[in-house]
């Protein structure tokens, strides 16, 4: 099926197998390998992206369901080499180790901060509960997000 999506401001038109997951479409067809796959049950959140302003796990959506959508992925966060305050805060607070969950964490936190620019610690933890990190224990991730909250 023909699918047209806009990812990070660039429009792509592709012929896609109807059963292909959005995450595999992004990674395999569009070569946007920043979003990752960490499970096969929708638990880990490594594939989190923002579709038409809504945070989704892109393994829980078919590529064809995203037809016509505007998608934001981790590759689109920074302006060129200028990292966002959230990305800088992750570096400052050592909120990443292996970096595999990081793109999903950043997208979840970005969605949270848009909706609620002044989240409490509990609200941050709740917003990130769909994202698994096995390296950090989350403490530094929560600190990083808290540091950029208004």
């Amino acid at each position: 099926m023909d699918v047209t999506v806009t990812v990070n401001g660039t429009t792509y038109e592709r012929d896609v197998e109807p059963r292909k997951l959005l995450i595999h479409f992004l990674r395999d067809d569009l070569d946007l390998t920043g979003s990752h796959v960490g499970c096969d049950t929708g638990n880990c959140g490594a594939c989190s992206v923002i579709v038409d302003g809504v945070l989704v796990k892109s393994c829980m959506l078919l590529a064809v369901q995203a037809n016509g959508a505007s998608i934001e992925t981790v590759e689109g966060l920074a302006e060129g080499d200028e990292l966002t305050p959230l990305q800088l805060a992750f570096n400052e607070h050592h909120a990443l180790q292996c970096g595999y969950c990081t793109p999903g964490m950043l997208m979840s936190a970005t969605a949270l901060l848009r909706e609620n620019p002044s989240p409490s610690e509990d609200e941050i933890a709740k917003a990130l509960q769909g994202n698994i990190c096995r390296c950090t224990g989350y403490w530094n991730i929560v600190e990083a997000v808290k540091s950029v909250a208004k």
Binding site: L77, N91, G99
Partner: peptide
């Protein structure tokens, strides 16, 4: 506590993991 040199690529989704 020097800030990590690895982070910039990982924060931008520019790491190269095996499936990439």
């Amino acid at each position: 506590s020097v800030k990590r040199k690895e982070d910039k690529r990982l924060l931008q989704g520019e790491g190269v993991f095996v499936d990439d």
